[in-house]
């Protein structure tokens, strides 16, 4: 490997990629869950003016890239960004910036604190080396805005709804609203009840959020964990490792096991999902969850 190539690998590790144009680079910035402060944005704008061509590119993973930075200015630009608390993103065979939707803090449908999970995953894994690129996304609910199932690891907020007679006035709104038509009204000893088909339920929060009498309540709340999703050259939707992970501890334990397994068994440049297909999904699930 020549000195120049070595240099490129080192730059790629810290989120700088060579452009087609000789001596010009893309600076990929890190924004966990897509968040940046206004003053950080001002700093990015300044750096793009001073060292780039006065524009930025928004990446598909909620990041900002500054294009056309000359090789000689990379370090100065990086230090300027660092002074505003902006770190560089990642390229190459390693864990990329964690993507997340706004989650329960601001979104009506959000079931979980997506940003908290994203920050923790960032703390644990960002830039760590893996056989191929490794992407993680956190999404608050079944609307799946950050496409959990298109990532190597996807975390999706999930609730299991439960009907309680309580103040229910038998309006039937839930039957019309359920996106999967999983709710039905049944006659019962008490007159009637509303029941949900758990196999059809996608664990969204439409019934619990919109029931006028709050008769649909959250029974269980947690995370649906996906493994092995990828878009790119050979797309593969992720597989569900566990539909309802009830604690953060268990979530992190399963993710740690998944990444460890990928590091052990993944071939170079083989995405996690393709490794799963090579080994067999059931074998991988068993390895990660333990035997049923």
């Amino acid at each position: 490997m020549s000195e120049h190539e070595l240099d490129l690998a080192a730059l790629s590790k810290v989120g700088m990629m060579r452009q087609k144009q000789p001596d010009y680079y893309v600076m990929r910035l890190k924004a966990v869950a897509g968040d940046m402060t206004a003053s950080q944005l001002a700093c990015v704008a300044g750096v793009a003016e001073k060292y780039g061509k006065g524009f930025v590119h928004l990446s598909t993973r909620q990041g900002i890239e500054i294009h056309y930075v000359h090789r000689d200015n990379l370090e100065t630009a990086r230090l300027e960004l660092q002074s505003a608390g902006i770190e560089m993103g990642a390229c190459g065979p390693r864990v990329r910036v964690i993507v997340a939707c706004p989650g329960e803090e601001t979104c009506r449908w959000g079931n979980i604190d997506t940003k908290k999970i994203a920050r923790e995953l960032d703390r644990r894994y960002f830039k760590q080396e893996t056989p191929s690129k490794f992407k993680l996304a956190v999404t608050g609910c079944s609307n799946n805005c950050t496409k959990a199932n298109e990532n190597d690891i996807g975390v999706r907020g999930a609730i299991e709804p439960k009907w309680e007679a309580g103040e229910c006035n038998d309006c039937g709104l839930c039957v019309s609203l359920c996106p999967l038509s999983a709710i039905e009204r049944r006659d019962s000893d008490e007159g009637y009840c509303y029941a949900i088909d758990e196999k059809l339920c996608i664990n969204c929060s439409v019934c619990t959020s919109l029931c006028p009498s709050n008769s649909w309540v959250i029974g269980r709340k947690g995370y649906t964990l996906y493994i092995g999703g990828t878009m790119g050259r050979v797309p593969r939707f992720a597989s569900v490792l566990k539909k309802m992970v009830e604690s953060e501890e268990e979530l992190y334990r399963l993710i740690e096991k998944a990444i460890t397994l990928y590091r052990e068994k993944g071939r170079k440049k083989e995405r996690f999902g393709h490794m799963i297909d090579r080994i067999g999904l059931e074998a991988v699930k068993e390895e990660l969850r333990g035997k049923p």
Partner: peptide
């Protein structure tokens, strides 16, 4: 549409008596 209308009704505290497809 029904999702949006239901949301507005709940936010405004109106009473839903019956819903039928």
């Amino acid at each position: 549409a029904v999702l949006r209308v239901a949301r507005t009704l709940k936010d405004c505290g109106h009473r839903i008596v019956k819903v039928e497809n």
